[in-house]
């Protein structure tokens, strides 16, 4: 069960059992965005308050599997209080980690996964790096990225409202 332990690391199970920043903020003023995985029905609802160029507060609601929900919880802890620019960078680093497998598939014509991995600075991800085991389970990548795509969409929508 070595693969399973790599997927379900203790920190993931901890965030699944005790999700951080759980709930919803009043909207308005908070901006509300939903992420939805039509394959499995997982859903995540993010309400976020963007003030002074920062994600001043955010809360996570919704339900789904351990990977989608722990990823959302880890994300909330990582981005709360951070400047929007930094959050966008984190989104892109996280999604980079999750696309390692895809990149490998594109390069690796033998399908043996032996190709050079894409360089991602895992140090920048802190606790989020615990989710890297997911890339070995391609179907679950969508679970892990669900909340991140919703967050990116939310930030775009907030930016569009402001401009």
């Amino acid at each position: 069960m070595a693969d399973l332990e790599e997927l379900y690391r203790e920190i993931i199970l901890d965030h699944y059992r005790s999700p951080r920043n759980r709930g919803e903020l009043d909207s308005p003023p908070a901006h509300r965005v939903e992420g939805f995985n039509p394959l499995c029905g997982d859903e995540v609802v993010i309400s976020m308050l963007v003030e002074d160029g920062k994600v001043a507060d955010l809360k996570i609601a919704g339900s789904g599997c351990s990977i989608s929900q722990s990823s959302a919880s880890l994300m909330s802890a990582a981005v709360k209080g951070k400047p929007v620019g930094e959050v966008r960078q984190l989104i892109s680093t996280f999604k980079g980690m999750m696309s390692i497998h895809e990149a490998a598939l594109e390069h690796d014509h033998d399908g043996d996964g032996s190709d050079e991995p894409v360089e991602i600075d895992l140090d920048k991800l802190g606790e989020l790096a615990a989710l890297q085991g997911v890339v070995k389970f391609p179907v679950r990548i969508k679970c892990a990225t669900l909340s991140w795509n919703a967050l990116a969409q939310g930030l775009d929508e907030v930016a569009a409202e402001v401009s």
Binding site: M1, L4, Y8, C40, G41, D42, G64, C65, S66, F137
Partner: peptide, 21 residues
Amino acid sequence: VHAHDLAQVLDQFGVCVRPGH
């Protein structure tokens, strides 16, 4: 336990089930 997680663990036992809606 969410169905996806059940199916993932079952896979390690060689068991093929369908998770989802």
